[in-house]
Design a protein around this nucleic acid. Structure first.
Length: 455
DNA sequence: TGAACATTGTT
DNA sequence: ACAATGTTC
C-alpha cells in the first residue's frame, strides 16, 4: 500500500497530466494537493490570482466528484509537504517541473528532504532537449526552431484517468472566493473549447490575420497555457492534422512557430537565469534610461496621445490581455519613444497580464528593447502611426478601447492631433482636453533613442 | 516580427 | 509626382 502526493502547481488539469499519471502508476492512493504559497501570492497580480482560484474551484469540484477531493494548504511548500506526508504516509511526491529561479530553488529544497519526482509537461520538450551540436543552448531563435522541429515527435497526450482511488479524510483550507474573468472562462474544458474554436474557425488564416489588432485572428490560448489548463503537448498533437492539411498548413505552422517561441524563452530562462534581473547582452546594460514617473504613468494608463498605444494599454488594464502586436507596439513605445527601462514595462505587464509568465514576458520585453537573445536590432523603432495604419486600418481597435475617439473620422484616427479644430468640435473631442496631445514627438524620440542606444 | 531617407526608374 | 529599390541607423 503506497501513497503518492500529486503536488499541483501549473498543471491545473486532469487531461495529459504527466505528474498525475506518474503518481497513479507508482501508488495505490493519490492525494491531489495545491499549496497556496505566500511568496507567490504576495505578488501584485490580483487578476491571475482570481483566475487561479476560479480554476482551483473547478478542478476541486471535478476531483470531488471522482471521490478524490483536492487538499488545499497554505504556507511554505517544504513545511506543508512535510506535514502532509506525516499525515498521510506518502512515500513519493510528483510535480510538473518549472524553471524560474524561485521554482527551482523551492523544488531543490523540497527534493533535499523529501522524495520529489519532477516530470515534464510545462513544455513539449524539457529545457536542454534542443541544443547546439556541442551541447550548449541556442541563443538565436531560428536555429533553435529548426532543431526543435527535427526532434522525434512527443508521445501522445495522456487521457483523463477514468478512476481515482479514494483516500482517508485530510484537512483542507477553504478556497478564497473568486469570480469569472471576462472573456476567459475558467477550467480545462473551456481551454479545450477555445482550442477547438481556433482549429475550426481561425487557424487557416492565422498567418495573415494574427497581426491585425482589429480582428480575432489569434488563438487566445495564452492564459490557458499559463496555468496548464491545456498542455502544450496536447495542443501540438491536435494541431498536427492542420499542419498536414495544405489548406491550413501555413496558419498552423505559424502558430506552432509561436508555441516554439514559448519553448525557446523557457530554455533561455533555464540556461541564463540572470535574464530575469537584467539585459541578456552585456553591451546593452548601460543604456541611459530616462526616469519619468509622469511618462510611465501616461503609458500605464493609456494616455500617451498615440491612439494605438493607448488602446493597447487600456485593453490590458481593463481585461488583463493584450493583442500580441499591440504588446510589441506598446513595448517599443515605452523603451524607444519614452526611453524608459524595459524592466518597468516588464513589471507592469507581469502585474496586469492574465497570461503573465516570467519567461515569455521577459523574452518579449528584451526582444523589443533589443537587449536580449536574438535581439531585434536596437535601431528598429516602431512608428506608432505606421503600425496603426497597417494593423488597425479602420481604427476599430482604437475606437473599441478609446471611446472618446469613437467619432473621429478615419482620416485622423491614427493621429488625432492633426485634426482641424472644427472637426474636433464635430467629433466631440478636443485634443489636449478630452484626449491628450502626443506626450512626445515620435521623430524626435526616435533620434533620441538611436543616440542613447549607440553610446 | 522596421522605418527613414536617398536614389533610381517610370509616368 | 511617385513607386520601387537600396542604404543606413
Amino acid at each position: 500500500m503506497t501513497t503518492a502526493i500529486w503536488w499541483i502547481r501549473r498543471d491545473l488539469r486532469l487531461s495529459d497530466n504527466q505528474s498525475l499519471h506518474s503518481a497513479l502508476s507508482q501508488a495505490d492512493t493519490v492525494i491531489p494537493v495545491y499549496i497556496l504559497d505566500p511568496h507567490l501570492l504576495e505578488r501584485n497580480a490580483s487578476r491571475r490570482h482570481q483566475f487561479l482560484f476560479r480554476n482551483l474551484q473547478i478542478l476541486s469540484e471535478r476531483l470531488e466528484k471522482m471521490g478524490c477531493p483536492l487538499v488545499l494548504r497554505q504556507g511554505k511548500p517544504i513545511v506543508e509537504l512535510s506535514r502532509l506526508k506525516e499525515e498521510c504516509g506518502a512515500s513519493i511526491i510528483t510535480a510538473e517541473a518549472d524553471f524560474s529561479s524561485y521554482a527551482r530553488q523551492r523544488d531543490q529544497e523540497v527534493k533535499s528532504e523529501l522524495n520529489l519526482e519532477l516530470v515534464n509537461g510545462l513544455l513539449i520538450y524539457p529545457p536542454g532537449a534542443a541544443v547546439k551540436a556541442d551541447g550548449t543552448p541556442y541563443t538565436v531563435f531560428t536555429p533553435f526552431y529548426n532543431t526543435w522541429l527535427a526532434l522525434p515527435l512527443p508521445n501522445d497526450p495522456l487521457p483523463i484517468p477514468d478512476h481515482l482511488p479514494a483516500y482517508p479524510p485530510l484537512s483542507s483550507e477553504a478556497l478564497p472566493p473568486s469570480n469569472e474573468i471576462d472573456g476567459f472562462p475558467a477550467g480545462e474544458e473551456q481551454a479545450q473549447r477555445r482550442l477547438d474554436d481556433f482549429l475550426q474557425f481561425s487557424v487557416g488564416d492565422y498567418h495573415n490575420q494574427r497581426d491585425r489588432v482589429d480582428l480575432d485572428g489569434t488563438s487566445l490560448l495564452s492564459p490557458y497555457l499559463r496555468f496548464g489548463l491545456l498542455s502544450p503537448r496536447s495542443a501540438y498533437a491536435q494541431m498536427r492534422p492542420f499542419l498536414d492539411n495544405p489548406q491550413t498548413h501555413d496558419g498552423a505552422s505559424k502558430w506552432l512557430n509561436e508555441l516554439v517561441w514559448r519553448e525557446f524563452y523557457f530554455n533561455i530562462m533555464a540556461a541564463f537565469p540572470f535574464v530575469l534581473h537584467g539585459a541578456f547582452r552585456e553591451a546593452m546594460r548601460d543604456i541611459p534610461w530616462r526616469s519619468s514617473p509622469q511618462d510611465l504613468h501616461a503609458w500605464q494608463s493609456g494616455h500617451t496621445g498615440y491612439p494605438l498605444v493607448d488602446a493597447g494599454m487600456r485593453q490590458l488594464a481593463q481585461t488583463g490581455w493584450m493583442h500580441n502586436r499591440a504588446r510589441m507596439i506598446t513595448a517599443s513605445f515605452l523603451t524607444k519613444d519614452l526611453l524608459i527601462n524595459w524592466q518597468e514595462g516588464e513589471a507592469w505587464f507581469m502585474q496586469q497580464l492574465l497570461d503573465g509568465d516570467p519567461a515569455s514576458n521577459n523574452g518579449g520585453w528584451q526582444w523589443t528593447a533589443g537587449t536580449g537573445t536574438d535581439a531585434a536590432p536596437y535601431f528598429r523603432v516602431f512608428n506608432p502611426v505606421t503600425q496603426s495604419r497597417k494593423f488597425d486600418p479602420q481604427g476599430e481597435y482604437i475606437r473599441t478601447w478609446l471611446p472618446e475617439l469613437a467619432a473621429v473620422p478615419d482620416a485622423f484616427i491614427h493621429e488625432p492631433w492633426k485634426m482641424p479644430s472644427e472637426l474636433q468640435v464635430k467629433a466631440g473631442v478636443q485634443i489636449g482636453r478630452d484626449y491628450p496631445a502626443p506626450i512626445v514627438d515620435h521623430g524626435f524620440a526616435r533620434q533620441r533613442a538611436l543616440a542613447a542606444y549607440k553610446k
